[in-house]
Each structure stands twice: as structure tokens, then as C-alpha cells.
Design a protein around this nucleic acid. Structure first.
Lengths: 190, 190
DNA sequence: GTCTATAGAAGGATAGAC
DNA sequence: GTCTATCCTTCTATAGAC
């Protein structure tokens, strides 16, 4: 138990955001689950829920970027890596009873029309993903403009498949989205 | 003003779900905006928020299905209709300051791990969309299995693009997703 | 079937002792 | 920097007059 109170609060909030969303996550529940006194929350995050939320979005977003990019780089070929991203996401969903998909998608939709600071935090995350994925495609020899489209298409397909998969409790959409992304890659390679 | 109290409550809730989500929508705000007395809500929806939410999900989902399918059928060709779905969605987003995307996506993610009755309502909606879109592809001469994949791929691409578009306040993702869906259609036609 | 009032719980936030 | 107690608002839900 060497984690700090602040880290426990951040980790707990991240886990709750993923399943219950932003408005669905209560600060009292957070400190209870994190085994932290209520006052510590406002000591570490004077800006309250919005400040905590912003840090969690950026932190979860970066961690997920690292995870996905590692899987993306895991394949022997670019195609294999791309396929692994979708099959890996499907495996995690099945293992977590369709709870753990994108860590910020629910929150991103919730705050898009309700909090500018939080919306901007989600944009930073998505931009980071797009840049990272674009770089991967470019490194594999694809032109900059095509690479960006592939990156955005892959992320959109993944996010959309997550919506369908979490609702239906099936990974069918992830398999279809994976195949569709591979097709786009094929076309870009010409 | 010939709308009934019940219809006003349903319409108002639908509009609020779209922007603020399920937990972000308060029943007091609903009745206030709908110009309805609070008691009427529980008169028409004895099951409270969950019953109201279920009806709104099904109703909004069906209306959106009709709208999208009408646009899908609007083009001279299947390809044109498909492109119109994405460009039409982009136009609506721009016109509504990136607020009005999918009417149930936010709610679907919120309730996926918190309410079985509501999750099932979202599944019904998504299944309806998949069936309708599949039928459209089949009618155009595509095999049943390929048509279903195209339908799921199109809906996933649209939903994922909505997430990115609402967050970034840009329609770039919708354009990319539209192109990606067209590519999938091309490949299916072989 | 309409409407008001209020209960009872949970929400975010703050004060202040230690 | 830790922790408790409490404030005020908002939430869902109910009771009961009309």
C-alpha cells in the first residue's frame, strides 16, 4: 500500500467514470471506495469535481493511449497490429462483463454540452490518440493525409463499436469494426 | 398547442437526454421545461424515471431510425444515400452547435452498467437500426451476411464519429467515417 | 386527472479541529 | 496534510387536496 491518497482518489474516480459516467459518479462514493477522508479530496483538488474530472480524463486518456499503442505496435505487420487492437478490446470487454471499454467515451458525451473545461480535456485526449495513431501509419510508409484519415477512422470505428458492444453485450460490432478498419488500411496502401 | 401533457414530457425528456444524458437530466427540470405539473409525471409514468427513460429511449430511437432511413433512401444510388447519411448528420451537428447527434448514445453508455431495463431498451433500438439498414443493403442486391456487416459497420462508424465530433466540435470524423463506410460498401459489392 | 407541498436521500461543497 | 461534521442544494418519489 504505497499509493498516495491523491493517487487512490484518481484511480477510483477513473474506474467509476468508466462505468457510471461523470454525473453518475458521486464524490462521496469516490472517497469511500478510495479509503480517503472527504476533506482530502478538496485538499488535493481545490476546484472540486470539475478539477478532479479534468485530471482523470487526461490521465485515463494517456494511459489508454499507451495501452492501445503498445498493442498496435505488437503485431509483426501493421495489419496484424491493427487487428490486435480490436480483438484485444473485445477480449477485455468479455472479461469485464462488458464494462471496461473506452475510459472516457461516456464522460466525453456527457460533458460535450455541459462543461467547456472538461470538453477541452477530452479533446486533448482524442487529439493525442489521433496524433499517435497517425504517426504509426506514417512510420509504416503511408502518406501524412491518408495516415490521419486512417487514424481517425480507426478510433471512430473503435468508439462506435464500443457503444454497440456495451449495449448489446456482444463483441460482434468490434469484429466488424476491425475488419472495416483493415479494409481502409488496404485501400490506403493501394 | 394540442400536444398532451404526456407527449410534452416525452419530447422534453428526449431533448434533454440528448444533451445532458440520463443522470444529468433531472425530473424537476423536465416538468418545468414541459410546462407540466410534477404530479403528472408520476401519473403518466408510475415507474418513475426508469419507466420514462425507457419510453424515451424507444421513442427517440424509432424516430431517429425513421429519419436516418429516409435519408439513406434519398439518394439516386445506394452509395449516394449512404454518403447523405453522414453529410446530413454533419450538417445537423453544425446547425445545433454540435449538440444534436445520436439521441440515445450518451444514455446507452450511461445505463449499460447501471440499469438492465434501460440497457435492454437501447439494445432494442440498436437492433432495429441494424435490421433496417441490413434490409436496405439486401434490397440493393447484397448478400444477407455482408449486408449485416455493412449495417453494423455503418452504425458503428456513425456513432464513433459522433463521439469525436461532439467533443472536438468538428465534422472531420463524420467525413472520414462516411468515406470509410463507402469503402466497405465498395468492397462488399466486389 | 391536475397540481402543490413535502418527505427522505444523495449530491457538491465548506469550516475548522487536530 | 488528515479527518469529521455540517451546510445548502438538488434529486427522486410520495401524499393528498382539489
Amino acid at each position: 500500500m504505497e499509493t498516495s491518497t491523491k493517487d487512490r482518489i484518481l484511480d477510483t474516480t477513473a474506474a467509476m467514470f468508466r462505468r457510471y459516467g461523470y454525473t453518475g459518479t458521486g464524490l462521496k462514493q469516490v472517497v469511500q471506495r478510495a479509503n480517503a477522508p472527504f476533506g482530502s479530496l478538496y485538499h488535493h483538488f481545490p476546484g472540486g469535481k470539475e478539477e478532479l474530472g479534468g485530471e482523470v480524463i487526461r490521465r485515463s486518456g494517456k494511459m489508454y493511449e499507451d495501452l492501445v499503442m503498445a498493442i498496435f505496435a505488437s503485431g509483426a505487420t501493421l495489419e496484424e497490429g491493427l487487428a490486435n487492437v480490436f480483438s484485444g478490446a473485445a477480449a477485455v470487454l468479455r472479461e469485464t462483463d462488458y464494462a471496461d471499454a473506452c475510459p472516457i467515451a461516456t464522460v466525453a458525451l456527457e460533458v460535450a454540452s455541459t462543461s467547456e473545461p472538461l470538453r477541452k480535456a477530452t479533446v486533448e485526449v482524442f487529439d493525442g490518440w489521433i496524433v499517435a495513431a497517425t504517426l504509426r501509419f506514417v512510420t509504416a510508409g503511408i502518406s501524412e493525409t491518408k495516415a490521419r484519415d486512417l487514424a481517425i477512422g480507426m478510433i471512430a470505428a473503435l468508439e462506435g463499436a464500443f457503444v454497440l458492444a456495451r449495449a448489446t453485450r456482444s463483441t460482434e460490432a468490434l469484429e466488424v469494426a476491425g475488419k472495416m478498419s483493415l479494409l481502409a488500411l488496404e485501400a490506403a496502401r493501394g
